[in-house]
Amino acid sequence: SSANIDFIVKPEQPGSYTIEFRVLSKKCGVRIEDSKTVNVNVEVLKPGPFKEGDITPTEVREGEETTFTVLFVNKGSGTAKNVEIRVVEAQGFDIIKGSDSSPDIPSGAYGHAQIILKPREGGLKQIKVKVTYRDEVGKYYEDTLYYQVKVLSYLGEISDIKLPSTLVIQKAYTLTVEVHNTGDLDCTYEVRVSSNLPAEIMPKSQIVSVSKGSSDIAEFTIKPVEKGTLVLKVELYIKHLGKKVDSKTVSALAKEVSLKLQEVSQSEIYVNEKGYIKVTLRNTGDLDVNALIKVTIEGKTYEETKYIPAGETIEVSIPVVCSKEGDIPVEIQVLDKNTGLILCTSTAAIHVKSKLIYWIAGITAVVAIVIVILALMYYKRKKSTTLPLPPPPPPSS
């Protein structure tokens, strides 16, 4: 009969080994009954190559620092030792932590490592990593692996800007900016406005939150303070990233409204009777003006509105009533009725007469005439009623 006997042999070094088998007899003491030798070549099992496993997460947000767990599988027949992974290329990412190590990985098993990246832009991105490892005897190997990650982007555009094409300096206008979210996520934007000419812009920037695929409006108040071509630059930023995603400009012609007060005159004005103050105005600006003329006398204000085309001169009569005679101070203020802007001011004095003096003089003259007439009448009457003188006495003898 026969029997099979198994022996476990663990070679510690590669090479050629001779294994001798002996059959010893226990009955006859230690006696070799038979022996044989076997030659064995010991080789090192090669680990690798490594192939890509999963990467988690597979979807991240732009600008968010993210820890990725990278899996890779040992496709070789040997155990991989001293396994390390290093990011060699990550387009569109900032590499915060680009290397890591893994425990020994037997044949067919998965290893894992962690890397930290911060995506700068959206889209489907590729991460290229290099895996290095050694076999049982320290021989070095390396493989290159590729992983894909989707980065959700924050994007947006200025879809519309509204502003009148002609502006009047010192007048406030509304600038309307429409923001459209073209990105993958809800987003909070900052809209900034600047100008090439001096202008009051309120506010300088504004925050707008817009859902994915939607639009919203930001409004600004614009008041030009200098004539010329006003160019407004509108910039759109992702607020939490500080990233500019769009920029547009809009132009308008800023014109000046200007009136010059050339002369102040008056009609004959009597106490408690309506008279007229006459104001001569010349439109020296670029635009027609709907002028509001205010005249203040004795604490009371009189108003008159007059349309004055650009380049023309017009005399405006304002009816007034004064309660006392003499030289009365007058304050004159001219405004643009549409904007409330004060265009010019002036002070003057008007002379107000009293008719009482003329009445007294007239009455005096009438009385004098009546007296003269009565005197003449009296004289004539007296003359007609006077008797003739008696004749003189006769001469005495």
Rank of each mutant, 00 (worst) to 15 (best):
V87F: 11
V131I: 11
Q114V: 09
K118M: 14
T132H: 02
T69N: 07
I127H: 06
G111K: 01
A90N: 04
G98S: 09
A80I: 01
H112D: 10
G98V: 11
E136N: 07
F93E: 03
F72T: 00
S102Y: 08
L71W: 15
Y133K: 01
V70H: 04
G138W: 08
K75G: 11
Q126R: 13
V88T: 15
E65S: 13
D100E: 07
K128G: 10
I116E: 08
R120I: 14
K130G: 00
T132V: 14
G138D: 04
P103H: 04
L124K: 15
G123C: 09
L117M: 08
V137Y: 06
V88S: 08
A90R: 01
V137T: 14
K128L: 15
D94V: 13
G98M: 10
G78K: 02
E89P: 03
V137W: 12
I115K: 08
L71T: 01
R134L: 08
G76C: 10
Y133G: 01
N74R: 06
N74M: 06
V129F: 00
T66E: 10
A80Q: 04
G108L: 12
Y133M: 13
T132N: 03
I127M: 05
I105N: 03
I105V: 15
S99N: 02
V83H: 08
G122P: 11
H112P: 00
G98Y: 08
A90H: 01
V83Y: 01
I115S: 10
V83T: 10
R86P: 02
K97M: 13
P119T: 02
V70Q: 02
R134E: 12
I116Y: 05
V129P: 00
E121I: 11
T66H: 12
A109Y: 12
I85P: 01
N74S: 04
E89D: 15
V87E: 00
E84R: 12
E65R: 14
E121M: 15
S107F: 00
G78Y: 04
Q91F: 15
R120Y: 14
